[in-house]
Design a protein around this nucleic acid. Sequence first.
DNA 1: CCAAGCTCA
Length: 700
Amino acid sequence: MANLPIIQFEEKIVETVEKNPVVVIIGETGSGKSTQLSQILHRKGYTRSGIIAVTQPRRVAAVSISRRVAQELGVRLGEEVGYAIRFEDRTSEKTCIKYLIDGVLLRESLSNPELNQYSVIILDEAHERSLNTDILLGLMKRLIKMRASNLKVLITSATLDGEKVSRFFSNCPILNVPGKLFPVEIFYNMERPKSYLESSLKTAIDIHVREPEGDVLIFMTGQDDIEKLVKKLEERVQSLEEGSCMDAVILPLHGSLPPELQVRVFSPPPPNCRRFIVATNIAETSLTVDGVVYVIDSGYVKQRQYNPSTGMYSLDVVQISRVQADQRAGRAGRTLPGKCYRLYPSMVYHEELLDATVPEIQRSSLAGTVLYLKSLDLPDMDILKFDFLDPPSSESLEDALKQLYLIDAIDENGSISSIGRTMAELPLEPSLSRTLMEANEYGCLSQALTVAAMLSAETTLLPGRSKSTEKKRKHDSSDLPNGSGWGDHIQLLQIYELWDQTDYDVDWCKDNNLQVRGMKFVRDVRKQLSQIMQKIAKGSLDVRTNERRKESQEDYRNLRKSLSVGYANQLAERMIRHNGYRTLGFKPQLVQVHPSSVLRTDEEGMLPNYVVYHELISTSRPFMRNVCAVEMPWVMPILKKLEKLNISKLSGGSGQSEEQTEGDKSSLPKKDDVNVARPVDDRDSQIQAARERFLARKGK
DNA sequence: CCAAGCTCA
C-alpha cells in the first residue's frame, strides 16, 4: 500500500477536499484510488461525523475492494469496513467506510433523500457512466447545495472527461493521480480492414512468430466472432512448423461461457507456452487477465440501444470510444511494458472515435428512471429539465412519461400517483411493478411475483447457445411445460412452480437445461419482492407458491389480466388474416412474435387477437419477445386512455410555451365527448368505434 | 422460423 502512487498525493487531496465541496480525481489503473481515497479521508477524521460511502458499478468490485480495505486497516469485514449489494448487506453499527453498488445508494436515497448518514460520498468509476451513476451525479449536484456544511463529494473519472465533470460541478478542482501501468506502445493499421476477423488473425500470428513471450488479448464483439477466430487460430497455430516458435493455447472468454470455462483464464499457462485470449469487452473492466503483454483491438463493441420513437431495442456493433480504446490498451501494461495493435488507422482514433462511450442514460428506456425521480419529490422539479451531465433527449423523457401515464404511475398532469409511489419501491421495471400491484387485486400475487422474478433473470436461465447446443431450445427440448398455449409468461410461471415442487433441486435444473445460478437468482429476487410487497401491505398478503396444486385456467386468466394492465404500454393487435402484429402504442410498429415463443395458434392457425409483450427487439426483423395472450375487453380501456393522452400536460403543464408536435394536437381530448354520448348498452359498436378512431389517428 | 455485449436494484 505504501508504494501506491496516490499516497504521495495525500496532503494535496486532503487540502483540496477541505476547501471544496466537490473534487474530481483522475486516477489511472493502479493508482489505488478505489482502496485509498476512503482511507485517507478516514485518517483525516471524516468518519467522525458520518460514514464514507464509495459507490461501485459492479458487485464483485464492491466485495473485493472492501475486503482489501478491511485487511489493510486490520479490521473484520462487516465491522468498520463493509459493503452493501443486492441481497447482502454486510455493514453494522460500527461501519464507517461502506462500499456499495450505485443502485443501492439510490434506493437508500428514496427513504433518506439527504443521505444524512454520509459525510463523504465517492462516486468511483464515474467515467463508465452507468445509468445509476449518472442519476447520482445529478442528485449530488443538488445535495451539495443543501448540505454545503457537512458533505464532501469526490468523483473519480478518466482523463478524457474529467474537464466535463468539473464544468458540471461549477468548475470544481481536478486532481491527477498517476497510475502504475507500464508504458504501452501503440500500433495502428494503415487502413481499416475489410474483415477485422482476418486482420486480428494475421496480427495474432505475426505476434506469435516474431515477438517475445507474453500473452495476447484480442477484443472482439461477440460469441460468434470469438468462436470463429478461436477455430481459425487453432488451425493456423497447428500448421506452423514444429519448433519454429513456442506452443500456444487459445481460450475464448465471454459472458455466456459457463463459469468453469471462464475461470480457465486465471490459471497460469504451462511453461514456454503463449496464451491467446479471445474476449468480448468482459475483459475490458470486469475481468482482469494476468500475463497479458499484447492487446489486439478490433475497435468495435456490441451495444444495446433503445429507440424512444419506436419503443424498440436493438443490439448494434458500434465503434468504441477513445476512453474504451485507452482502457483496452492499458490491459497490455499491467505486468510488463506492452504493445497494443489497433486494427484501424490512427486518424480514426484521433478524429472519428467519440471521447467517451455514449452514456447508458441516452441508450435506455427511462420509464424507471423518471418514476424514481418523480418519487423523490424534489422541490421545483421539472423532470424534463433535471440537471444531467448528459441529458437524455426530450423525446426519450416524453416516451417515459407516456409509458408511466398509461400504467397509472402518474396522472394526466404528470404528478406521481399513489400507485406510482408504491411501484417505485419495487426493484423492477415499471411494467412489472404495476403488474404485481394489479395481481394483488385479482388474488394472483404469488403467480405474478414468480413471473416478475423469472423475467428479471430470463437471459441467464438458458445456457449460452452455440452451434453445439443449437438443438436445445426451450420449446423443443425436454419436458418443460409450454405455458398451456397462453404464452411465455405462463410458461415461466409453470417452470418455476415445477422447480419449487422439487424443493429447488439443482439436478432438476441440469436435467432441464436451466442454469442453476439463474434459477437461484430467481428465487432470491422472488423472496426480495415478496418481502417488499409484505412491507407495503403490512404483512397481510399471501405470497406462497402453490403447493402441488394444478393451476386453474381461472388463475391464468387473472394473471393475464394483470399483465394487460401492467403492460398497457406494450400491447399489440394481430392484423387481419395473418399472424403479424401491430403495436398499440403512440407510433404503431409492425412486428412478429419471436420464434422462440410458446404462444399457440388456434385450430385455424391463427395467433391470439391481442397480446402483451415484454420487449421489442430488432434483430433480423422487429420481434416481440416474451409474449402473452390477453383479451379484447381488457385492451379497450387502455386504447381510450391513449386517446386522452396530452404530452404537453404530462411533461409539466407549461403548456403553450412548449412546442407542440402534430401528434400532440391530435391527441387533445376533444373526441372523448363524442364517446360519452354513445349508447352505453351498445358495447360492441362502442369498442369498435374506439378502435377505429384510434387506428385512424395512427394513419395520419 | 431466430441469435445474445456487459452490468445491476
